[in-house]
Amino acid sequence: MLLKDFYSVESSREEDGKCITHLKINKNHRLYNGHFPNRPVTPGVILMQLFKEDAERRIGKSLQLKNANNIKFMAVVDPEIHNELFLEYHFEDNSQEIRLKGIAKTNEGISLKINAIYKLI
């Protein structure tokens, strides 16, 4: 986990070839002291990292981002309002890389769309 105590996994399952993970964000994490004071926002790079970490848990191997050619940040994730996040994605795994396509959602809708390629390390 890149940021200790930033989130916890509430549930994780596979359904119709899709990985679905329910995360609970720690709204009191020290990250929010600097991003931003009095108006906390979850950084986009952290949202991207959540997909990497979840995929690593599923396959039991470490990954390194190789290419992220299509990332769209759709809405702000304010931890005071959105302390639950849902990752929905599917991935293709070959012997050298993972191709992942997914969305991160709050209770209000989609926050992030991602297409990424990770190298197995």
Rank of each mutant, 00 (worst) to 15 (best):
K61L: 13
E97P: 01
K61D: 09
N83G: 00
L87K: 07
L63C: 12
D78S: 13
L85P: 01
S62T: 14
R99E: 13
L65A: 15
Y89D: 03
M74L: 09
I98Q: 06
I98G: 06
N83Y: 05
H90V: 04
N67P: 00
D54F: 05
N94Y: 05
E84N: 14
E56K: 06
A68Y: 08
P79T: 08
S95C: 04
R58Q: 14
K72H: 09
E84T: 11
A55V: 15
N94K: 05
A75N: 14
L50I: 11
E88T: 15
E53D: 09
R57C: 00
D78K: 08
A68S: 15
Q96R: 09
M74E: 10
V77F: 02
E56Q: 12
L100C: 12
L63M: 12
K101H: 10
L65R: 06
V76S: 07
F73G: 02
A104P: 02
H90C: 10
D78F: 07
K66S: 14
F86S: 04
P79Y: 08
D78A: 11
G60V: 08
K66Q: 12
H90K: 11
Q96S: 11
R57L: 09
A104W: 00
A104N: 01
L85D: 03
E84F: 11
D54C: 12
D78Y: 03
L85T: 02
R57Q: 11
D93P: 00
G102C: 04
V77E: 02
K72E: 12
N69T: 07
R99V: 12
N67L: 13
Q64G: 07
Y89S: 03
D93A: 06
I71F: 03
K66E: 15
V77D: 01
D78N: 15
D78I: 07
F86N: 03
Q96W: 02
D54Q: 15
S62E: 15
I59L: 02
R58T: 07
L63Q: 13
F51S: 05
N70A: 14
L50M: 15
N67K: 12
I59N: 00
L100D: 06
R57A: 08
N94F: 00
F86Q: 10
L63E: 10
S62R: 15
F73K: 05
H82L: 07
L63V: 10
E97V: 04
P79N: 08
N70K: 14
F91L: 11
A75P: 01
N83V: 00
Q64H: 08
E84H: 12
A68C: 12
F51V: 09
D93I: 05
S95Y: 09
K66P: 01
R57P: 02
L85W: 04
L63S: 11
N69F: 12
R99A: 09
L63D: 09
R58N: 06
A75M: 11
N70P: 02
